[in-house]
Amino acid sequence: MWRSLASNMLTMLVVGLFLLGGVILWGKTQYTAEGPLETAICLRVERGSNMTKVSRDLESQGAVKSGAMFRLGAKYSEKTGQLKAGSFLVDARSSMEQIIEQVTTSGASSCGTEIVYRVGITRITTQVRELDPATNKFVERANFQLGTDETPAIYTNKLAEPDTRYRVALAEGVTSWQVVEALKAMEMLDGDPGTRPAEGMLAPDSYEVVSGSKRADILAEMQERQQLRINAAWEARTDDLPLENPEEMLILASIIEKETGVPTERRQVASVFTNRLNRGMRLQTDPTVIYGVTKGEGVLGRGLRQSELRKVTPWNTYVIEGLPPTPIANPGMASLEAAVNPDTTEYVFFVADGTGGHAFAETLEQHNRNVVKWRAIEAERSNN
């Protein structure tokens, strides 16, 4: 009898262990298998949250079949206590293992709200946008001019949310003064910006920042990027340029940047200034004169006066020889490259052509004809 009982118990134990092993194997398979989510979602994990809350949220959104299984997987992988706050993009069919990896590895949000500050030549445009998980594209929720327009409520509300992401985007051709003033206006940043960076030494680019970032640190990163670009452009320069050093390249690049917004024209504009420098001609470019008036602090907002075109300043290239003493803006990489690799032309003149671009000329006679055409276009526009 005892032998029979022991045999039965042993059999039951073996069966039980077998079943337990099967359950564990099944659970592991479920944990790593493709999930039920049909469309990507944005999972928000609040500060102070826990795996129970997260699992219930995932379950309610159809991202996991079993919240209990999700919690067991987190416990088994020893990640229960590693939960991060943030907004996480959970792709369709993500496994429980993949989701747990997302919410425990990094606190950097991958979806949710992003506030973008676009620092332009004339204004700071603030855009509040949210990532649509279904299309993986941003949807604009608000767009206004910082410091000018009425501040929308959604902007104020999103500033208070800890997982809101921020981006600062500098347009080509902004001045260092404009950048510093823009950073001062961004209330989620911290600290004094310090001494204004030298003109031309801030890289037009997009910078991801976080709430509480130091303004001085952001400016330092902008300068570091620009220095790398300056080094790369100068290293790749062509021969026989009328430029002695990277500083002169930066000055010329800033003039090119302010003279044209048409990408395909940059090297042509560069060729005009290169030809003028090689021939000992004055550059005669309005943006440098404007900089002599404003020093880069704001926008002139009107046409140049004859008295300003005649006034001697270090930046008035109608009266001085060669390049001005400093850049007049922060040029982008394309303008830096154009400055040291201009088109090969005989152009020494250019004027607006009414399309947003310019008409180029090799002789004064050709240039004068182009000027007549441009003035006719201006007159027609003023009459309409």
Results as ranks from 00 to 15, higher is better:
Ile100Leu: 15
Thr126Leu: 08
Gly303Phe: 00
Leu159Arg: 13
Met186Ile: 15
Thr260Ala: 07
Thr156Lys: 12
Glu337Tyr: 02
Glu208Val: 02
Tyr155Gly: 07
Arg282Gln: 09
Gln61Arg: 15
Phe144Tyr: 06
Gly62Ile: 13
Met333Tyr: 10
Pro342Gln: 11
Pro342Asp: 06
Gly86Tyr: 02
Arg310Tyr: 06
Gln284His: 05
Asn384Gln: 14
Ile290Gln: 03
Arg123Tyr: 05
Thr355Glu: 10
Leu83Tyr: 04
Glu337Val: 01
Met201Lys: 12
Ser55Leu: 01
Arg237Cys: 00
Gln223Val: 02
Leu252Pro: 00
Gly356Pro: 07
Met12Gly: 09
Gln284Ser: 06
Pro246Gln: 07
Arg282Leu: 03
Ile115Phe: 09
Arg310Leu: 06
Gly200Trp: 02
Asp149Trp: 10
Glu208Trp: 11
Pro287Lys: 14
Gly73Asn: 12
Thr264Ala: 14
Asp190Gln: 14
Ala74Phe: 02
Thr326Gly: 01
Thr105Ile: 01
Ala108Met: 10
Val269Gln: 08
Trp177Gly: 01
Ala74Asn: 06
Gly332Ser: 12
Lys84Val: 00
Gly200Glu: 03
Pro324Glu: 07
Val139Gln: 15
Gly357Leu: 11
Ser382Asn: 11
Thr238Trp: 05
Ala376Cys: 02
Gly280Ser: 02
Val128Met: 09
Ile124Asn: 12
Thr355Leu: 07
Glu199Asn: 10
Ser254Pro: 05
Glu380Val: 00
Leu43Thr: 03
Thr288Phe: 03
Thr11Ala: 14
Val128Asn: 08
Tyr318Asp: 12
Leu170Pro: 08
His367Leu: 02
Met188Cys: 04
Asp353Thr: 14
Arg375Lys: 13
Gly296Asp: 02
Ile154Leu: 07
Thr39Ser: 14
Thr125Lys: 14
Leu219Pro: 13
Gly194Phe: 11
Thr195Asp: 14
Thr104Lys: 12
Thr355Cys: 04
Glu248Trp: 04
Ala232Tyr: 04
Asp91Trp: 11
Val64Trp: 09
Gly86His: 02
Val64Gln: 10
Val168Pro: 05
Gly354Gln: 11
Asp190Met: 01
Pro324Gln: 06
Trp2Val: 15
Cys42Asp: 10
Gln366Gly: 15
Gly173Trp: 07
Glu337Asp: 15
Lys373Asn: 14
Ile251Ala: 02
Asp353Met: 10
Ser213Glu: 14
Asp286Tyr: 03
Gly200Ala: 12
Gly191Asn: 13
Ala171Gln: 14
Lys258Ala: 01
Ile24Asn: 09
Val272Thr: 08
Lys84Asp: 00
